[in-house]
């Protein structure tokens, strides 16, 4: 995909550029809203990059699941410890 940049239209970016920003985008770490829009626009129209985004999203989700079942007993003990501080 190529840059066009017509007035009133979201400029398109190349796959290489989208790949460069992809992980920042998925992590919500792109502060520049113009760049965000361009990445979104690209991912919606480029099948390969869209699949790449889906892949990383699935990986992030799979990893995050582990955080929810981390050692609940330790959490309970430490919560009780906080309550005991007085």
């Amino acid at each position: 995909m190529r840059f066009r940049g017509n007035k009133g239209e979201i400029s398109q970016i190349r796959c290489k550029t989208a790949a460069k920003w992809l992980q920042f985008y998925l992590d919500g770490e792109l502060s520049d809203t113009i760049v965000q829009q361009r990445v979104t626009y690209h991912l919606e129209r480029c099948k390969n990059c869209g699949l790449e985004a889906e892949t990383y999203t699935q990986i992030k989700t799979a990893i995050s699941i582990h955080a929810r079942d981390l050692d609940k007993r330790s959490i309970d003990r430490l919560s009780a410890f906080i309550e005991s501080l007085d």
Binding site: A67, L70, D71, S74, I75, L78, S79, I82, E83, L85
Partner: peptide, 15 residues
């Protein structure tokens, strides 16, 4: 305040 603020961060600290 301490209890309310810190408790939710225990999983993070453990990890």
């Amino acid at each position: 305040d301490f209890t309310d603020a810190i408790k939710p961060e225990i999983p993070l600290l453990l990890h």
